[in-house]
Amino acid sequence: MTTDTSPANAVNQAAFTRAMMDASITTPQGLRDSQNRPAGRRFNVYRNNVAVSLTDALLQAFPVVTKLLSEENMKGLAGIFLRAHPPQSPLMMFYGAEFPDFIAQMEQLSHLGYLADVARLEQHMRRAYHAADATPIDPDALGSIAPEDLMQTRVSFTPAMQVIRSPWPIFDIWRFNMEQDAPKPQAGAQDVLITRPEFDPTPQLLPVGGAAWITALTGGKTIGEAFEVANQDADNFDLSTTLALLLQGNTLTALHRKD
């Protein structure tokens, strides 16, 4: 390799990345092989490494979306996404936060209306997996509060708890693709609660009104105030079933009783 420091041979990182992310751009001329010939195919190693590693990260993050689309189609979609939205941080565990919105805006995917919300569910599962640890309350602590005081109590949740509302049966779709013998999805809106009892995020179907109730609670409303919100959202809101899901999922970290 002969050194040739003429300005035309200087390769800055802007030129390197432009050519790396767009194969139609010629490889910078300052990149060579050992005999001073143009780097050619050698530069493709970087093009390939970046595309493959980011595509793999997306396939790993969105396994159900990948199944729904087929791996081949998902790889094609990932190739477009990673060029439009390269990671903005080295934390690959969070790469793809914009992927659900990206799917929603893809005209070619508009016939799969549910796909963006399924992606959102998978994205929230990942966030729950990496969320901060928190100590749950003893479920019996609720029993020691008189019913009239309970309605005036506020609660705090673990950072791992997530709620997703969808006009699509996203819970059934998720389960059908992840679990053996799961029933076929039926049309209809579904709200999903994600809990992390210990280390593994678990999605569960919320009763009607449950998402509105939990969202009101996370917004700082009392259990009673949130109950009103839930009743406006749905006719048959089932408070005790929803509360049991929260307790079983170790989602409550504190009860704030009325002074």
Partner: peptide
């Protein structure tokens, strides 16, 4: 390394 830089000294 998969390639070299002409400008390396």
């Amino acid at each position: 390394s998969y390639l070299a830089f002409a400008e390396s000294t």
